[in-house]
């Protein structure tokens, strides 16, 4: 087991390095000019050249990648301009390890931008996660218990219908109608716990997390329903029923335990992906999390920030994969890893 975990982490780390290289090449070796995107709209050719040097874009892309890696492990300084370092050291931005670069468009280090945005995305992901797990699993169990009846069809059907609408349509409809026109909820604004306490934090999260949850619920209802039905057909459940155990007891003690393992696997992976930001939901609700930061970076060609977020997102996904596999092994004794 221990050897397995170590191996997975090792492979995961290698994958991250390879991915960061691929990402770096995709963005910085593309025929477009990264220096062009460093100074907004009224860039003079001279200024572009200056920035190219200051940010190291004049060096071969592999050298740049080497510097990037160096930044990740030991930190860097921006701009890399010896003259400026000597004459005006106060203008040099320190970027301590793990340094993911410096965004000239946001005048800040990428790590600090990500650190500011991450709590928003994590709050949103967790709130949505709780909502969809609770609603999805209970919906799925109910549907399974009433298999084939109206309530089953209504649950599965309505979840599927909601799922069929694009996220931004659902999000905008909720925002415009529920929050603004009917004023059933406060205007969704993210308030951190340190700023406003738990209450405002939760209020603000309600509509965005509901939007996000609505997309996932359909999948979880179906998944739960399928697993519950499947395990209800298993021999040991039949045995339990034959023993005269009540439906509730069978469901609680046996069926759910069997069904929850695969659901937890899927849920873990979904959560891992969401932690890196829900691009559309954050954009719709103007939540300044990683997703919106990513959109802002992508649409302004803020390459260092984009690369940074891609790598952070990949880290979340890879980590979630490892965690889920390891947990799976712990929960389900049948799974053995050599």
């Amino acid at each position: 087991m221990f050897a397995y975990v170590v191996r997975r982490i090792f492979v995961g780390a290698i994958m991250l390095v390879v991915m960061s290289l691929v990402t770096y090449l995709l963005f910085f070796a593309a025929p477009s000019d990264p220096a062009r995107f460093t100074c907004g709209k009224n860039c003079s050719p001279e200024l572009i050249e200056q920035n190219r040097k200051a940010l190291g874009y004049d060096k071969p892309v592999f050298v740049q990648y080497g510097q990037f890696l160096k930044g990740v492990f030991v930190g860097r300084e921006f701009p890399d301009d010896p003259e400026l370092k000597k004459s005006a050291p106060e203008t040099i931005a320190e970027c301590p390890a793990p340094c993911l670069g410096y965004s000239p468009l946001q005048s800040d280090t990428v790590s600090s931008l990500i650190a500011t945005a991450a709590p928003v995305s994590i709050s949103l992901a967790l709130a949505a996660f709780i909502l969809w797990m609770v609603l999805g699993i209970s919906g799925g169990v109910i549907a399974a218990l009433y298999k084939g009846r109206l309530i089953d069809r209504a649950l599965v059907g309505s979840a599927l219908i909601v799922y069929s609408f694009p996220t931004f349509f659902i999000g905008l409809s909720l925002y415009i109608f529920v929050a603004i026109k009917w004023q059933l909820t406060p205007i969704p604004v993210y308030t951190s716990i340190s700023d406003g306490g738990i209450g405002p934090w939760l209020y603000g999260l309600f509509l965005p997390s509901l939007t996000l949850a609505l997309i996932y619920i359909a999948g979880y209802i179906r998944l739960t329903r399928a697993f519950v039905l499947e395990s209800m057909g298993e021999d040991y459940i039949r045995t339990a029923r034959a023993k005269g155990l009540t439906q509730r007891r069978i469901l609680g003690k046996h069926t759910m335990r069997a069904a929850l393992t695969p659901i937890a696997t899927v849920a873990g992976l979904d959560l891992g992906g969401l932690l890196a930001g829900a691009i559309i939901t954050e954009t719709v609700f103007n939540y300044n999390g990683l997703g919106k930061l990513a959109v802002q970076a992508a649409t302004t060609y803020d390459l260092p920030t984009t690369v940074g977020i891609v790598i952070v997102a990949a880290t979340f996904i890879i980590t979630a994969n490892i965690v889920v596999d390891v947990l799976y092994a712990v929960i389900d004794p049948r799974v053995k890893y050599s």
Binding site: I176, I180, Q183, P186, I187, N286
Partner: peptide, 21 residues
């Protein structure tokens, strides 16, 4: 000063004219 809102959301909120808006 709040940035990042869309024209539609800003003006819907101003039409509704509730709370801080």
């Amino acid at each position: 000063i709040t940035e990042g809102l869309t024209n539609e959301i800003i003006n819907q909120r101003l039409i509704a004219d509730s709370g801080e808006d």
